[in-house]
C-alpha cells in the first residue's frame, strides 16, 4: 500500500456510496419525460422548484453538516439573490450575464458581513444572531416600497442570455436548474474532500484541537459561510426566475427553518441527503396540502418519526456512506 492511497476507501465501497446519488439524479432526469407522457406540465414546475431548494439545502449543509454552524437565516441569502434579480429587472436590466453574478455577489457579500459578526459567537447565540440578521433583511425587504414592499413585485420576465438560451421555456429552464444542481453537488463533493474541507470538518468536530495545531479556525469557517451564502444566492437567482416574482416571504425565518428540515431529514453531512430532503419535504407538502390545510398535523409527526427512526437522515436508511 503506497502512502497516497492510504485513506482512500476501497472501490466497491465508493461505488455503493454513489448508487443513491445516481438514483436521485436519474429520478430528476426523467421528470420532464414522465410529465410529458402524462400530460402534466405542472410536475416540471414542481420539480424545478424542488431542485432550486435542493441547491439552497446543499449550501446550508456545507455550513451545518460539515462546519457545525447552525445558521437559522439561510433563506435570507436566497432572498438577497432573488431581490438582486428583481431590482435589476425593475430598472430594465434583464441580462443574465449581469443579473446572475450580481445576485450571487450580493448574497456572498451579505454572508461575509453577517458571518464575520456571527462567528464571534457560539452555539445557541450563533443561531440567534444569524436569525436576527435574517429578520433584519426580511424587514428591510418589507420596507422597500419602490420594489413592492410587503406585497412583493412581479418581474418583467426571466433573465436573458443574449438569445443563447430561452429561460422562458419551462423545459429549458428545468435542464438549466438541473445542471446547476448537478454542478453544485459535484463541486461541493470536491470541496468537502479537499484540504479546505478537511479543515472545516476538523473544526466541526473539535475547534480547540484545530487551533492547537495551527489553524486560524475563524477564517476557515467564515470562508465556508461565504461560499454557502453565494450558493444560496444562486438558488435565489433561480427562484426569482422560476416564479418571476420576488417577495419578502422568500426571506422569512420559516423558510430558513424549512431548509434546516430538508438538510436534517435528508441527511446532515452527506451531500445527496439535502437533495433527497428537498424532494421529500416539498413533495409531501404538495401532496398533504391538497388533503388538508392543516397538513402540518400530518407532516410534523412524519418529521418526528424520520428523525427518530433514521438518525442521520433518510439517505442512511439505504446504507449509503456519508
Amino acid at each position: 500500500m503506497s502512502a497516497d492511497t492510504l485513506s482512500a476507501p476501497p472501490r466497491a465501497v465508493r461505488f455503493r456510496g454513489a448508487l443513491l446519488p445516481l438514483a436521485l439524479f436519474a429520478l430528476l432526469a426523467v421528470v420532464p419525460f414522465v410529465a410529458g407522457a402524462l400530460g402534466q406540465p405542472f410536475y416540471v414546475s414542481l420539480f424545478t422548484r424542488i431542485m432550486i431548494f435542493a441547491v439552497a439545502a446543499l449550501a446550508l449543509d456545507l455550513v451545518l453538516g460539515y462546519g457545525g454552524m447552525v445558521s437559522l437565516g439561510h433563506a435570507a441569502y436566497m432572498g438577497v439573490g432573488a431581490y438582486a434579480i428583481g431590482i435589476l429587472s425593475f430598472h430594465g436590466v434583464d441580462s443574465g450575464w449581469l443579473q446572475w453574478p450580481l445576485g450571487i455577489g450580493a448574497a456572498a457579500l451579505a454572508a461575509l458581513v453577517i458571518g464575520a459578526l456571527s462567528l464571534r459567537t457560539r452555539g445557541v447565540y450563533f443561531i440567534m444572531i444569524t436569525l436576527a440578521f435574517a429578520q433584519m433583511l426580511y424587514y428591510t425587504a418589507n420596507a422597500l416600497s419602490t420594489y413592492g414592499g410587503d406585497d412583493g413585485m412581479t418581474l418583467w420576465g426571466r433573465s436573458s442570455f443574449s438569445g443563447l438560451v430561452k429561460l422562458s421555456d419551462a423545459r429549458t429552464f428545468y435542464w438549466i436548474v438541473f445542471a446547476v444542481l448537478a454542478l453544485s453537488y459535484l463541486g461541493l463533493r470536491r470541496v468537502v474532500a479537499s484540504k479546505f474541507g478537511r479543515v472545516l470538518r476538523g473544526c466541526k468536530e473539535n475547534e480547540r484541537r484545530m487551533a492547537a495545531i495551527g489553524y486560524n479556525t475563524a477564517l476557515y469557517k467564515l470562508a465556508a459561510f461565504v461560499l454557502s451564502g453565494a450558493l444560496a444566492g444562486l438558488s435565489g437567482v433561480l427562484l426569482a426566475n422560476h416564479t418571476e416574482f420576488v417577495s419578502p416571504a422568500y426571506m422569512s425565518w420559516v423558510r430558513s427553518g424549512d431548509l434546516i428540515v430538508m438538510v436534517v431529514i435528508g441527511g446532515l453531512g452527506t451531500l445527496h441527503g439535502p437533495i433527497a430532503g428537498a424532494v421529500l419535504v416539498l413533495v409531501l407538502e404538495e401532496v398533504l396540502s391538497k388533503l388538508t390545510q392543516h397538513w402540518w398535523l400530518i407532516f410534523g409527526p412524519l418529521i418526528v418519526l424520520t428523525v427518530w427512526r433514521a438518525k442521520g437522515g433518510v439517505v442512511r436508511l439505504f446504507g449509503g456512506r456519508a
Partner: peptide, 22 residues
C-alpha cells in the same frame, strides 16, 4: 495529516482530494 497540512501553510485549497496528498 491535518497537523502536517497546517505546517505546510494555509489550507485554502478547495479542489484536490486531501486524502490523496502523498
Amino acid at each position: 495529516a491535518l497537523a502536517v497540512q497546517a505546517r505546510h501553510g494555509h489550507s485554502f485549497r478547495f479542489w484536490a482530494d486531501a486524502s490523496r496528498d502523498g
